[in-house]
Simulated scan of single mutants.
Amino acid sequence: MISLKDIKKIYKTKNGELTAVNNVDLDIHQGEIFGIIGYSGAGKSTMIRLLNGLEKPTTGSVTINGQKISAIKGAELRAARQKISMIFQHFNLLWSRTVAENIEFPLEIAGVPKEERKKRVEELIELVGLYGRGNAYPSQLSGGQKQRVGIARALANNPEVLLCDEATSALDPETTDAILDLLLDINKRLGLTIVLITHEMHVIQKICDRVAVMEAGKVVEMGEVLQVFQAPQQKITKRFVSQVSGEDQTKEAIRELNKSYRSGKLIKITFVGEQTSEPVISQMIKRHHIDANIVHGSIQHTQSGPYGTLIVHLEGNVNDVQAAIQFLADSNLQAEVVSND
């Protein structure tokens, strides 16, 4: 659906050349929600401008649905952009127009007849949960409602791709979740390909299928969200994952628990996907005649499935405890001893 091949974007500044995107190769599949995450200066905003044709790559190509966006201009590029919509961090609404008029605006530009415009606007107001607010002005809306208008406006021309540029970073956590739920619903209903640019791992965790982690203009790690949560490879990825995984709290819990337990073993067990619902701990206790006490745990949910950790204190005969740990490994669980007798 979306393919970036050997993309490099270099800006010329008074202090010399600045490489904003450096040798990026990326493929985004039809109908998926793909996240691009990075801190300020990572190059993610440049990436989104390359996707909608606002910037041309210095080298490489950007292809969307078979059309090379990086090689067209003028009327052809304007026509292509009607299929690549965007929502923004600060909404970018027309403050002198009502909700309905804001949503109608791109249809006016596209030359859609008035009656057809009116019908489409009504459909979109219903879709984004703003029924009865069509005659309100942006100043009369909450932040979440404004973003719903932005989403409706972006959907007006039936785009194939929706780009989201930090679309929830100006919203409170509860409103953020509501907007993310709306995007997920739209993705499932319309089969729309969504690309999210963000610096918040919660956004990636909640709705994305896959994620690319950017640092200094490069994609340093990429994969399914669950896979990245389970085994982050790069230091920056580990930082992002720790924002939502509770890893820091787990480490603190292990330090405190090591002070409390003077015998037995503390085991950190990692569960992924369907493993989170299997009675592995009870099976281990029955088979190996040990005492097991769950002393700390957390489960996070992603679109690919849940991911969680448990800290379990094991007491019993040394051989039985070792056999229990081997049982966990044989059950395809990651089991790590985090304290010794």
Rank of each mutant, 00 (worst) to 15 (best):
I151S: 10
T46Y: 04
A71I: 03
T98H: 12
E32T: 10
R78P: 03
G35T: 09
E123H: 07
R148S: 11
H90R: 14
L130P: 01
F34M: 08
E122N: 11
G16M: 13
G38P: 05
Q140I: 00
N65V: 03
G38E: 09
N52H: 05
K119D: 13
I72V: 13
G143K: 11
T63G: 00
E76P: 03
I84N: 09
K146T: 05
Q30D: 15
F105D: 01
R117F: 03
E104I: 01
S40K: 08
L26H: 10
E101D: 13
G150I: 09
L51T: 02
W95P: 01
I151H: 13
T63C: 08
F34Y: 15
I87L: 09
L50E: 05
S70Y: 13
N135F: 01
I33N: 08
S70N: 12
A136P: 00
G74T: 05
E122P: 00
V24T: 07
N92E: 14
P106C: 05
A42H: 05
Q67C: 05
E55W: 00
I109G: 01
Q82M: 14
L77E: 10
R97L: 15
V128K: 02
S61L: 00
I36A: 03
I103Q: 07
G31Q: 11
A80W: 08
R81Q: 15
G66W: 12
S40A: 13
L26Q: 07
G143M: 09
L51W: 12
I37F: 11
L77P: 10
T59L: 02
T98Y: 13
G66V: 09
G74K: 12
E76W: 05
L54Q: 11
P106F: 07
I33V: 15
A71M: 13
V62Y: 02
L124F: 07
T19Q: 04
P57A: 06
E32K: 08
V112K: 11
E108P: 00
K114W: 03
S142N: 09
R117P: 02
W95V: 01
N23E: 14
E115G: 02
D27N: 14
I36K: 08
E55M: 00
A156E: 06
L127D: 00
T59I: 12
A20C: 03
R81T: 09
L77R: 06
Y137Q: 00
Q82E: 13
L26S: 11
K14V: 10
I36S: 03
G111M: 07
K68Q: 15
L94V: 13
G111T: 06
Q89E: 10
N92R: 13
A100G: 13
G53Q: 08
F105S: 10
S40G: 08
F34C: 04
P57D: 09
E17N: 15
Q147F: 12
S45W: 11
N92K: 14
G31K: 09
P113A: 02
G144Q: 10
G132N: 06
R49S: 03
E123T: 02
K118V: 02
A80E: 12
Q89P: 01
R49A: 01
A156W: 10
M86G: 01
G43N: 04
T46N: 04
G60A: 02
Q67M: 14
A152V: 05
G38I: 01
R78Y: 14
L50N: 05
P113K: 04
E55N: 04
T19R: 06
P113F: 05
N102V: 06
M86Y: 05
H29Q: 14
A136S: 15
I48L: 14
S142G: 06
S96V: 03
T19D: 01
L127A: 03
G35A: 15
V149Y: 06
